[in-house]
């Protein structure tokens, strides 16, 4: 019981901190905290979605950034066409550009999820090391694909003219944008927490733990894994769409495999299979990056060994340290 309450305290404290961060930023006169906060929330969203794959269903995807990139490009391309007043598609149906967030954000989720459906269906023909390499290869394929898309800036990417419009709120106001990100992360966490304790979640946790045994029970896990892959892809797509809005810029670099690797690092640092851990991991990673970058431009030369040590010695991650005991699930 005391463990449970400790976990609740950590989560509740974190939520309060995130909720009042804009106030802190205003009082301390550090508006820069807001944009850092938004970045943390967005990366956290992507990391939570990756945790569904790594921590629960045992799918080690090294290509998760592809879906972040797709989500971002949906925002970028959609706005490009809206600005140019040219349709994106004229056949088989008319699809014109838009900069309305209520339309573009769901579209980003759907497109990323659809891409995850196709890539996942191919990747799930394999397991183990093959799966890792193939997810990486597909992400790289998309990376090169977007580099070759001269129309949308190719290697240089696309600059947004402004953030998406949203009825009732003004996303160009950093505070409004921050709360949009916080809401998105909160809703996604709520959804994933329900998901992993549902019957569906039980199956994917079983698949992540011992896939052969699951087959012995008469359950073929492939379709469950594929749906998980699609959900995770959709979550990453949402993160990408928010990221595009935050930086007002999209580029193939978002799909680069180093971003996939960094998302993985966030999940591990925070705590594998904990959902809330990756939020902590994203915060720790980005703060560490900012902090180290202040002292040396070569911060990665320290981050690398830190990561290796974390892998070898601290498997439970930060969330495990803070929340203690059996923080995995509830």
């Amino acid at each position: 019981m005391s463990l449970l309450s400790r976990k609740t305290i950590v989560i509740g404290g974190g939520a309060l901190l995130l909720f009042f961060l804009p106030l802190v930023a205003k009082l301390t006169g550090q508006p820069y905290l807001l944009s850092l906060g938004s970045r943390i929330l967005i990366y956290a969203l992507a990391a939570v979605s990756l945790d569904l794959l790594l921590g629960y269903s045992g799918m080690i995807s090294l290509g998760h950034a592809a879906f972040v990139g797709i989500g971002a490009y949906v925002v970028g391309i959609s706005q490009f066409h809206s600005y140019e007043a040219t349709p994106f598609l004229s056949a088989p149906f008319l699809l014109s550009g838009s900069e309305n967030g209520l339309f573009v954000l769901p579209l980003a989720i759907l497109v990323a999820a659809f891409a995850a459906l196709i890539i996942g269906a191919l990747c799930l023909r394999t397991t183990g090391m093959h799966f890792i390499m193939i997810t990486l290869a597909f992400a790289q394929m998309l990376y090169y694909f977007f580099i070759s898309l001269e129309k949308y800036g190719g290697d240089d990417g696309l600059s947004l003219y402004a953030r998406n419009s949203f009825p009732g709120i003004d996303l160009s106001d950093d505070r409004h944008f921050y709360y949009l990100c916080l809401t998105a992360l909160g809703l996604f966490l709520l959804f994933t927490c329900r998901l992993v304790t549902s019957r569906f979640g039980l199956i994917i946790r079983g698949a992540g733990n011992n896939d052969r045994r699951l087959k012995g029970l008469g359950i073929r896990s492939t379709s469950y894994k594929l749906v998980t892959f699609v959900i995770a892809g959709g979550g990453a797509g949402l993160a990408g769409a928010l990221l595009a809005n935050q930086t007002e810029y999209v580029s193939p670099g978002l799909m680069h495999w180093t971003l996939s690797g960094e998302l993985m690092v966030m999940v591990l640092l925070g705590g594998l299979g904990t959902l809330f851990g990756p939020v902590l991991g994203a915060a720790a990673f980005l703060l560490l990056e900012e902090g180290l970058a202040m002292y040396t431009e070569h911060w990665m030369v320290y981050m690398g060994p830190v990561l290796i040590l974390a892998v070898v010695f601290a498997k439970r991650g930060l969330f495990g340290l803070l929340a203690g005991g059996n923080s995995r699930d509830d």
Binding site: T197, S198, R199, F200, I203, Y224
Partner: peptide
Amino acid sequence: CAHSGHNFRFLQHFR
């Protein structure tokens, strides 16, 4: 669950 039809039930706690 393995003996109770499909398991594409996403929100209700399995318990």
